[in-house]
């Protein structure tokens, strides 16, 4: 079954987008990236150290993968905009994962500032993929601002808690049937990824669940399969939930 994922005019086969942080080693990261089948990876923008030689982190990424720079660590719209502009200049890409964080303990997004930054960046020609709290009204505002997709969280960044509010994702899917919804952050295990996809997410972005797994490459494979399984489950159309049993075997004809 052909089920391409199109984002801002670019076609992807994989619906798994992965991060590059927290891996124990670059070799482990590369192995996980390879088996994940992911075609897009996110990277952070950071100051070049002044006191030591550094090699380019980008050399460790498969060149066929779309690089999605992010504005992680930004706490106001102005910082996020500046970071996005620097990323565009360094990488010659308009793509940006917009993160404007509201608080260092929860790393929950500041939706208001995210929207403010999104408007500026869209006007400057960026392809803005905003990370935000799983809120339908904010999703609408971000889409109205010109974002080609929205990226609601499943749970706080790096928490591995899984989809904390499935109703919000389901409502977002039902109310925004044509929007591209990418669940970003909070997935911990493959079943979390499958649940997000079963709820109708178009793709999932994850980092820690793979990077902090005991075996990152095996977890990357499991996540790839879970995303595929959840997607196929969603497209298949689930059976209705019933409070009471519904016999699978014929009652009539059973011996007495």
């Amino acid at each position: 079954m052909s089920d391409k994922f199109t984002l801002a005019g670019k076609e992807f086969t994989s619906r798994l987008i992965i991060g590059t942080g927290k891996y124990r080693s670059l070799d482990e990261m590369k192995a996980a990236h390879t088996v994940s089948g992911a075609e897009m990876v996110t990277v952070a923008v950071n100051r070049v150290p002044l006191d030591r030689k550094t090699e380019s982190f980008l050399d460790h990424l498969n060149p066929s993968m779309q690089i999605l720079p992010n504005t992680a660590g930004c706490y106001d719209a102005d910082h996020a905009v500046r970071t996005a502009r620097l990323a565009r200049e360094a990488l010659d890409t308009e793509w940006i994962k917009l993160e404007v964080i509201g608080d260092p303990v929860t790393l929950l997004p500041d939706n208001e500032k995210t929207l403010e930054a999104a408007k500026v960046l869209v006007a400057e020609g960026f392809i803005v993929l905003p990370y935000f709290t799983d809120d339908l009204i904010m999703a609408k505002k971000l889409l109205d601002a010109g974002c080609p997709a929205v990226m609601p969280l499943a749970a706080p960044i790096g928490s591995g808690m899984g989809v904390q509010n499935p109703s919000n994702l389901r409502i977002m899917r039902e109310q925004l049937p044509d929007a591209t919804i990418i669940v970003d952050a909070g997935v911990g295990v493959p079943s979390d990824a499958a649940i997000a996809m079963e709820l109708g997410a178009d793709a999932i972005l994850m980092n820690t669940a793979i990077a902090e797994a005991g075996n990152a490459a095996h977890m990357a494979t499991a996540m790839k399969l879970a995303v595929q399984a959840g997607r196929l489950g969603y497209l298949s159309g689930r059976m209705p939930k019933r409070l009471y049993a519904s016999a699978s075997s014929p009652i009539a004809g059973a011996i007495r």
Binding site: G19, G21, K22, V43, A72, L86, A87, A185, M206
Partner: peptide, 27 residues
């Protein structure tokens, strides 16, 4: 942001604030 072609001609002055960034692992 100063575009790369302009690095050769952009002058730096006393008390300038400069950021030089690259990419690192992140999620």
């Amino acid at each position: 942001v100063i575009r790369k072609p302009d690095w050769e001609t952009t002058e730096v002055s006393n008390n300038d604030k400069i950021e030089v960034v690259h990419f690192v692992g992140g999620g």
